[in-house]
Simulated scan of single mutants.
Amino acid sequence: MLRKTLLYLSHQPQIFRFVRNNGLAKKFASRFVAGETIATACDAVAELKAKGITASLDLLGESVTNEAEARETARQYLALVDEMQRRGLEVNVSVKLTALGQDISAALCEENIRAILAKVKGYGGFVRLDMESSAYTQRTIDFFERRLFPDYPETVGVVLQSALRRTLADVDWSVQKQCRVRICKGAYLEPATVAFPDKRDVDANYVEAMQRLMQKGRYPGLATHDERIIDEAIRFAKANGIAPDRFEFQMLYGVRRDLQERIVREGWRMRVYVPFGTQWYPYLMRRLAERPANLAFITGNVMKEMVKGR
């Protein structure tokens, strides 16, 4: 019931208009979304940089419905990376292929992402292809492996989700290819035939994938807010002589900022995924709808920071 309600609300433009003009709602959103413009997004990245934390910027928006929207998204990404370079920020962005036209035409999507990759490569930066639901997993991996990685092996990487039953096989594939991977748990509501319904299995799969990537992968991104898993990663790194520059931790903007700073203080690398753009309301509502437990997750992590005096 909660999921259906959240999805319904995410598609109501009149509510979106109200929320965008509501000070309290915007204040809540600003905790997790770095404003609506390239300027505010870069400001957030600069603030993180001052704390020794790197970032990956993500322009909010998922599947587009026509070619013009896909090209406009690509244009905005090109403007974004230009501004990051101009301001002396590390050029690192996350992109959803559906926002560049994956559901319209593979050729259109490839044209758009290649334009972004070419510019980012020139700046010595990096592009992460976000993973969406399991319906896109193989399509995204195939697109990456056949159309992008051969020409941009240093510039582009993918995301794998430990919630999916297939992920350890995909981890082994990534190790063989020596491509860069972000491992996360996954926020999408998936059928039990393709994903683990039990959180304990998702966590166990994450730890196994994480350890394989840390030992044999190419600079993996360990995306988690689970303090137990983070501590296990640190223990595993120390026990196996894995240096801090061999991997990085990754977290969401606004979530467990205390833990982000602790990781940096202890000498490990930390990158924050920073979403921004006008589509922040549907973004937040869809993330909550995909797995209503995310609401408890966000609330719980905010409370943890409050208890720690942040």
Rank of each mutant, 00 (worst) to 15 (best):
V158M: 04
A195K: 08
L89C: 08
L213V: 10
E90P: 09
T278R: 14
R265Q: 12
A209D: 14
V274D: 04
N301H: 15
R86H: 05
D103C: 00
L97M: 13
V45R: 02
L89I: 12
L252C: 05
S94P: 05
Y206R: 15
R287H: 13
Q215N: 03
D198E: 15
F149E: 09
R265H: 08
L168A: 13
W268G: 00
L213C: 08
D170N: 13
E47H: 07
A106F: 12
R147C: 03
R200E: 15
Y219M: 07
F297Q: 15
Q14E: 08
A106V: 05
L148I: 03
L284S: 09
G186I: 13
G122R: 04
F276I: 03
S56A: 09
R128D: 01
Q176R: 10
R146S: 12
K308W: 07
R86F: 01
Y152C: 11
G267D: 02
L252G: 03
G125Q: 06
K238D: 04
Y219N: 12
E190T: 14
K185G: 07
T140W: 06
T98G: 03
V95Y: 05
N294L: 14
T137F: 14
L284M: 14
L59H: 14
V264Y: 01
I104S: 09
K216I: 00
R286E: 07
R269N: 06
E305R: 03
L288G: 00
L97D: 01
A239P: 00
